[in-house]
Write a protein that binds this DNA or RNA. Structure first.
Length: 613
DNA sequence: GAGTTTGAAACT
DNA sequence: CAGTTTCAAACTC
């Protein structure tokens, strides 16, 4: 007898570490794996439900989540791309998705020969007996934990969608006859759902057969601990909902397909069915389900995934890596660079996927929509801006620090008149520091003269000490800043050792603060820009038909577009119009490089004649 | 709607 | 692990 789920005050928490799965390591492992697959939890790793909604009769596995909560998690306003079977029962316009239609009484069939022939160990004891003829209760749709999991990876219209005639459609109505809906053959069972409104016969995948269902679940999990895991993994778990909302189903089939005859272009293929390209996980033959395949692209009526370029082949990653090495010596810049790096290297829009066609088919990475706005050169400019801010802050603060030193020195002189002992003590402290400063400077000069220490303003392809990486302009700028500050400090004759150290610490703090503040402001404005861009694109997309995409995505200019983008990702000219990856350039033609600086309320340092070190 | 094809799941 | 069988969805007519 399994213990009930742990309850948290005021809510129900499904705690996978609880005793619910004690002794069921495979289930617990699966649950943990599911949680892990979700990535960093947007909510704590337990799903909270209002306590009032708890139904004690709900099954333990998959955990059932109340429909109201479920409905909140799955907005219903999204369109459903593929055609769907309409429910047999018409829904009234006022009916909510969780208000399930009244169910018919299903006849209970006697076991067929096939069922008798089945190995008994795969049929639960409860199933060996003829299930009593039960009328299926009129229950709200029992959304399950797995549903919620899936909802984060699939469009919310996966289960339901609202058509124009306000008829709710459901896509997965099984029609199982022999499996009693307790095998993974059954889509409902596989997805952790009860069969409600299905056309199945002799169904045991419901509340009334919960014991049998649990047994079947255990059997399935025993056979494959990942049996109930989503078959399509998302590489961008953190934003999968937004991706789904955009219609961009991303990822790859975790297990892969083994299709032989359908070229993976039919729904027999699980990858195709899941709207993902075949991946290295597949063992299919004659596969045409890869992003550059014209046949695949042409099947846009049924294809809703948008495969993406291999960033390695496009050079995107390489550029980013080089650029962000520029910031690796500075934590704040590093943070900024990393954030933008994620934005740049991990995403490709659906239009990119349609346009960039000459890449390895099995490498899949994804890009957020902001990738259309942010380009490498933008990041370079941002880094330069942050460097400028850092440098200006350093100079200003150093200057103020020196003034402070002068004041302190004057005060010390006054103090020295009062106390010769203190003066002597100060002199004792000052002298070694001065010696150290001059020693450091002279030793540096010696090292530079001997060629063992490179000049701070080195060639861009100089090898950085230790890691042998070429220095990017940003790194050099940072190093210049550090060197400048050090040399300025060491050159300052009036600086006392203690105040120099304090000043340096303060300067670094202030520099970091200013850099982060500027970066925060930049991100805020970028977010605004992104929202505006999204709005513009949504408006533009209504005017820009899919045919336009096909025209620009399937003709011979695609490779040129891809090549051009590799060389100059900012702007592509085609037929007098500006296109980028098949999409009308809104971001860069209207925002562009200078636009980012406008957003920041500053002029680009590159356009301002500023020395970039 | 019946029959066929297909590939995943189940089984050996 | 590979081959075979079972199954239900997808597809065709």
């Amino acid at each position: 007898m399994e213990k009930p789920l742990q309850l948290c005050p005021g809510s129900v928490k499904i705690d996978f570490a609880s005793a619910s799965y004690a002794g069921k390591a495979d289930i617990a492992a699966t649950a943990a794996a599911l949680l892990h697959a979700l990535g960093p939890p947007r909510t704590p790793p337990c799903y909270q439900l209002p306590l009032a909604k708890v139904n004690s009769s709900l099954p333990l596995w998959p955990p059932v989540i109340c429909p109201s909560t479920f409905a909140q998690k799955r907005p219903m306003s999204l369109p459903s791309p593929p055609p769907a079977k309409k429910l047999q029962v018409q829904q009234s316009s006022s009916m909510l998705p969780q208000d399930f239609p009244k169910l018919e009484v299903l006849p209970v069939e006697k076991p067929t020969k096939l069922q008798v022939r089945r190995s008994p160990q795969h049929v639960s004891p409860a199933l060996k007996q003829d299930s009593p003829k039960m009328e299926r209760p009129l229950l709200p749709r029992p959304a399950t934990f797995i549903d919620v999991m899936l909802s984060s990876q699939k469009p919310s219209s996966e289960m339901w969608s609202e058509t124009k005639d306000v008829t709710l459609t459901r896509k997965t109505n099984c029609s199982c006859k022999y499996s009693k809906c307790l095998k993974l053959y059954c889509e409902c069972f596989e997805k952790g759902r009860y069969c409600i409104g299905c056309n199945c016969t002799n169904c045991c995948n419901n509340v009334n057969h919960e014991n049998a269902r649990q047994d079947a679940i255990n059997v399935a999990l025993e056979r494959n601990p990942a049996a109930f895991m989503p078959k399509v993994s998302n590489s961008t778990a953190h934003n999968c909902e937004s991706k789904a909302a955009e219609g961009d189903i991303v990822g790859k089939h975790t297990k892969g397909c083994k299709c032989k005859r359908t070229e993976c272009l039919k729904k027999y293929c699980e990858c195709f069915k899941a709207s993902v390209f075949c991946s290295e996980n597949c063992r299919c033959t004659g596969c045409k389900n890869y992003k550059s395949n014209a046949d695949r692209i042409s099947q846009k009526n049924t294809v809703h995934a948008h495969h993406v370029q291999n960033p390695a082949s496009s050079g995107m990653v390489g550029q980013s890596v080089i650029i962000f090495h520029a910031a690796e010596n500075d934590s704040s810049l590093s943070l900024a660079a990393s954030a933008l790096s994620c934005s740049l290297t991990s995403s490709v829009t659906r239009e990119d996927a349609k346009s960039l066609v000459k890449y390895a088919p099995h490498e899949v990475t994804y890009r957020p929509s902001l990738a259309d706005i942010i380009q490498i050169e933008d990041v370079n400019e941002l880094c330069n801006l942050l460097i400028l801010v850092s440098r200006q802050a350093g100079a200003t603060l150093l200057e103020s620090g020196m003034k402070e030193n002068t004041k302190r020195k004057k005060l010390n002189r006054v103090d020295s008149c009062l106390s010769s002992t203190n003066h002597d003590r100060e002199a004792i402290q000052k002298e070694p520091a001065k010696q150290m400063c001059s020693l450091e400077k002279s030793s540096n000069e010696v090292l530079i003269a001997e060629g063992r220490l490179e000049l701070p303003r080195a060639d861009p392809f100089d090898i950085q000490k230790g890691n042998k990486r070429p220095l990017s302009p940003g790194t050099q700028a940072l190093m210049c800043d550090e060197q400048d500050a050090i040399f300025q400090d060491s050159k300052a004759p009036d600086a006392t050792p203690s105040t120099t150290e304090e000043n340096l610490v303060d300067i670094f703090k202030e520099q970091e603060k200013l850099v982060l503040t500027n970066f925060r402001d930049y991100l805020c404005k970028l977010a605004t820009c992104g929202k505006l861009q999204e709005l513009k694109l949504s408006l533009a997309s209504t005017n820009c038909s899919e045919q336009a995409f096909a025209d620009h995505g399937n003709n011979s200019s695609i490779t040129r577009v891809a090549k051009d983008q590799t060389n100059n990702p900012s702007v592509l000219q085609q037929g007098g119009k500006h296109y980028r990856s098949g999409r009308l350039i809104l971001a860069r033609t209207k925002i562009g490089n200078a636009g980012i600086w406008k957003l920041m309320g500053q002029k680009s340092p590159l356009h301002n004649g500023v020395d970039k070190c």
